[in-house]
Design a binder for these strands. Structure first.
Length: 640
RNA sequence: GCCAAUUUAGCUCAGCUGGUAGAGCAGCUCAUUCGUAAUGAGCAGGCCGCCGGUUCAAGUCCGGCAAUUGGCUCCA
């Protein structure tokens, strides 16, 4: 048979040759690290015979596909260890994930697993690695599979089998353990050299809150020790950057149980950063024809009935407040308020687009277990705006809004992924508006994405109830993904609020609304920003921009004059005139992550200079005060 | 909300099988006037998350509650 390699070369192999045979024919080295083979795009075990002409690709741990095979096999390895330690244990599903794998299990006799139990399981896994048992693929009739798992008493596997009725079933066996599995797996457990179990969590069977909660055990594994060490080191680094830790250390924000979980309070340092971010956005808005408005924190429930938010999202809102027989809602979004501003007066097509912007604080009910620092909260401020435009203006306005969002992310050097969030066609009841309107809006979004050459992917079922959107997604220090900015198309609200403008034809028309928020929420953006910079904020947003450090009391007069000068220029200065050694003052300036320290000794005071020290870099030598001021002014010029 | 873990001084953390609380840093006072990451001495600081129980005795054991953390579910 003819086997085509990824580089296009075709070679002859005997029919029935396995992936391992092919790997060996290339090199012993490849055969040692090969984990699986893709045959015409379908993953095969290396031992599985290939019978016909095929295009193949051998995968190793360096390929994402290879990692998935590796971690999938690791999940089976963990399952084998669990079964030998806890006989009678039942298994749910055990897939590979982005970073490792998990297995959902149901322990016998109500055993509660805690992280203290993990080392023993890990030790057992290592023992099984040494045994180096082969992963064996068994093709079996559906009825026989049912019989097998009935005998074993594993109701979860039986439930899974119900879904595969009629099709051919495969089992995988290694050592004493047999699992229902599509595959593919590594040749033997010996490959899974360095496993590490990471955490224990509860997870509902089939993700259904109403069903039994199983124990989910997360783990990861690597073929080389250095890889595991690197992975663990990265986790530590992520922990070091965690915005909750840095937020406390740098006094950026706090959460008080007495105020309430999920209701973060911005401390003076954090407030400076936030205000700088707001100034930055405001200066961009003014350049782009937005006007600012201010709306209250609560609104009559009828407003949200009109918008449709109330029935659609009543579960994620705080309960209504009743006063004088009227019901009010803590506002879960700003849009309906802005729509009222739009309809406050009649509009001509000549007025459009109307762009209303507000840093609007909204309140949403989140389950207590979901709250997390600044990233997931119950009250937050959106850098919100609504653009009311004609249909002809829509694409230009979308582009304008997306460009602003991109400017934000490039200014901070963040990597984002763009998701085109479309409706879920299987759940039409989740969305307002006609199917034709959705088709049109999704098409327009796609066209804009293509025109702007965005690097996007499509998220089915991620749309808002009133329309599809662009979402910008960023990862935090520990790899969790968060949606930040968003740009949304809305044909529904104009109808619900009967928004109008008079066209050139003297007829009434419906405007289109764009909802957009480049930061998303100030809180979440701040959480990502802290982690992105590891607390080392750039000069223009740093809570304290520069520390002034006289070496001895003799330089105090010179130093305090410099401090006054800097403060007069609106720089944020920390003057450290304590009778401490200069080393100490520098250490503290560095710990507080202040971008620059100006060290002043006898020499500088005599020459009208300062000795400049850059945070994280070190001593940059003596400079004139004028040069320092010029440099600071340049660094500050992002806001203009 | 559910599963698991955690909660001791402002912060980070120690406190073994129950015998009445400890360190470092921060703070305050004094001395020191110093050239690029921590000068020394002294002082002060605690409803050991909250409520209840067991016990002669609870930071420690048991129960409940709360908050936080890792997940699940959900997410405009």
């Amino acid at each position: 048979m003819n086997i085509t390699f990824p580089d296009g070369i075709v070679r002859q192999f005997e029919a029935g040759s396995s992936g391992m045979d092919i790997a060996k024919s290339i090199s012993e080295g490849l055969a040692r690290v090969a984990l699986g083979i893709y045959v015409n795009g379908v993953p095969y075990d290396l031992s599985r015979p290939i019978t016909d002409d095929a295009t193949i690709r051998i995968v190793t741990f360096n390929d994402d596909d290879g990692k998935q095979i590796f971690w999938h096999s690791s999940a089976h390895l963990m399952a084998e260890a669990l079964e030998s330690l806890y006989p009678g244990i039942k298994f749910g599903i055990g897939p590979p994930i982005e970073n490792g794998f998990y297995y959902d299990v149901d322990f016998p006799n109500g055993k509660k697993l805690s992280i203290e139990d993990l080392p023993a399981i890990e030790a057992k896994m290592k023992e099984l690695v040494k045994q180096n048992s082969q992963f064996e693929r068994v093709e079996i009739a559906w009825e026989d599979a049912v019989a097998f798992f009935t005998e074993k008493g594993d109701e979860y596997k039986l439930e899974l089998l119900e879904g595969f009725k009629g099709s051919e079933i495969t089992l995988y066996k290694q050592g004493e353990f047999t699992d229902l599995c599509r595959g593919t797996h590594v040749p033997s457990t010996g490959a899974l050299k360095f496993p590490k179990l990471l955490s224990v969590a509860g997870a509902y069977w089939r993700g259904d809150e109403k069903r039994k909660q199983l124990t989910r055990i997360y783990g990861i594994a690597f073929p080389k020790k250095e890889m595991l060490e690197e992975f663990l080191h990265q986790r530590e680094e992520a922990e070091r950057r965690d915005h909750r830790k840095l937020g406390k250390e740098l006094e950026l924000f706090m959460i008080s149980p007495l105020i309430g979980g999920g209701l973060p309070v911005w401390l003076p340092n954090g407030t400076i950063v936030r205000r700088k971010l707001e100034e930055f956005i405001k200066s961009e808005l003014l350049k782009r024809g937005y006007v600012e408005v201010i709306t209250p924190h609560i609104g009559n429930l009828n407003l949200y009935r009109t918008s449709g938010h109330y029935p659609y999202y009543s579960e994620s809102q705080f309960a209504p407040i009743v006063v004088e027989d009227e019901e009010y809602l803590l506002k879960p979004m700003n849009c309906p308020h802005h729509h009222q501003i739009y309809s406050n007066k009649p509009h001509s097509y000549k007025d459009l687009p109307v762009r209303l912007a507000e840093f609007g604080t909204v309140y949403r009910y989140e389950q207590s277990g979901e709250l997390s620092g600044l990233a997931r909260v119950r009250g937050f401020t959106q850098d919100d705006a609504h653009i009311y435009c004609t249909h002809e203006q829509l694409k230009d306005e979308l582009i304008n809004a997306i460009e602003l969002t991109q400017l934000v992310f490039t200014t901070f050097g963040m990597e984002v992924k763009t998701r085109l969030s479309f409706r879920d066609p299987d759940n039409p009841e989740k969305y307002a508006g006609s199917s034709e309107m959705w088709d049109m809006a999704e098409k327009e979004i796609l066209e804009v994405a293509e025109m702007m050459k965005l690097d996007y992917f499509i998220g089915i079922g991620e749309a808002a109830f009133y329309g599809p959107k662009f979402d910008f997604i960023v990862r935090d220090a520990i790899g969790r993904k968060w949606q930040l900015g968003t740009v949304q198309v809305d044909y529904v609200m104009p109808d619900r609020f009967e928004l109008e403008y008079t066209g050139a034809d003297n007829q009434k028309h419906r405007p289109v609304i764009i909802h957009r928020a480049p930061f998303g929420s100030m809180e979440r953006f701040m959480s990502i920003l802290i982690e992105h910079y590891a607390g080392n904020f750039p000069f223009w947003i740093a809570p304290v921009q520069v520390s002034v450090l006289p070496i001895s009391d003799d330089q105090k007069e010179y130093a305090s004059a410099l401090v006054a000068k800097l403060e007069a220029l609106n720089y944020r200065v920390k003057y450290d005139d304590r009778s401490e050694k200069i080393q100490r003052k520098i250490a503290e300036s560095e710990q507080k992550k202040i971008p620059f320290a100006l060290v002043i000794g006898k020499r500088e005071a005599e020459n009208g200079q300062v000795s400049l020290r850059e945070h994280g870099v070190g001593d940059k030598g003596a400079m004139s005060i004028e040069d320092v001021l010029t440099m600071f002014s340049q660094l500050n010029s992002i806001i203009n």
